[in-house]
Nucleic acid binder design. Sequence first.
DNA 1: TCTGGGGTCCTAGGACCC
DNA 2: TCTGGGGTCCTAGGACCC
Length: 398
Amino acid sequence: MDAFFASVELLRYPQLKGLPVVIGGGRRPADDALAQAYGASERIPVEAFPRLRDYVGRGVITTATYAARQFGVGSAMGMMKAARLCPQAIVLPVDFDEVRRYSRLFKDTIMEIAPLMEDRGVDEVYIDFTEVPGGQREGGRSLARLIQRSIFDRTGLSCSIGVAPNKLIAKMASEFNKPNGISIVHDSDLQTLIWPLACRKINGIGPKSEAKLLALNIRSIGELAACAPDWLIQHFGQATGAWMHEAAWGRDDRPVITHSEPVSMSRETTFERDLHPVRDRSELGAIFTSLCERVAADLQRKGYRGRTIGIKLRYEDFRSLTRDQTLEQTTDDARTIRQAAGQLLKRVPLDRRLRLLGVRVGSLLKAGAAADDARDDDTAALSPDPAPQPAAPSEQLF
DNA sequence: TCTGGGGTCCTAGGACCC
DNA sequence: TCTGGGGTCCTAGGACCC
């Protein structure tokens, strides 16, 4: 479902259709002012929208329209780099609530037609067609068309669909006909349609593996398929090497998973400017506390409790580090999380400026299931030193 | 003037137990 | 006393995905 973010944001601004637009970046109070000045969003003249060339900040692009991609701008690219490539592009903020609303609508629509659906994030799903009535007609094409049309009727959004014998190939097939296309790939198409593609197109081969493969003179999936499994295992380890070989031959027996439980929940933030642990102590302390409160609120709202508290830091030189600690009992309490996180902070060098701070709670259990072993965790502290103490004085720097 | 935020999974070493 | 497995849990880092 490419350009889903772009589409959702653009539904509100039909006047931007066909123009280079990037969506993402940080907070821009100007956006509200703009909406207020013109009332209805459709009435904002194109010239009034902020341009990439005027952007300041350290955000990245969430997505870009096809017109913007012509300039080499794309997802995950830093805004400042994008501004060099396409200064005239219009910049829109991401409205996450709106995106989530459309995401739900899009998934509900699919579930009504084909209930075996795996959620792969806000704009992607896997669907098992096999038991859906009519799912085999025209090799799946008619059901794909029905889903496409239903999504468009319900949301005004287009989507791309790949139909294939397994998830691995279906994902690649969905890229063939963007936007708004349907592609059908059979096992017999492996050599003609899949093998010419770069290894990077395999979902699971990222930039690091690609670079390693290129260094070994392997560029295409076909070349990867020609490698002996043992040789791949030598270079990439047992699990990855064997998996790479199977993937290159289009083999994948993972089922469509319709339900899964979260493993962890986290909140993190990159500061607008790098902050020094000593000089910006109070500001960092406030941010840190607020992250803990937000994770706790997430846990409570979704009904989970966790035992492992973790922190993440990113220094000004972009190196990151994590520390975590497992408590005796699960918690969803902001003060308990804050206290454990404060302890973890003591195990980390705080002599350089930071650009990011994060707080994570892992080893999650459903609140009902967790309640037995954590009846009164409000006073539960860290296992080695359970003595109650006021939160603030126990931390040296924050 | 680089490089967001929220996740999952894997690996590897050490502690600890049997 | 020495040697040697295996299994599980915890922690840290890293690759990858949307």
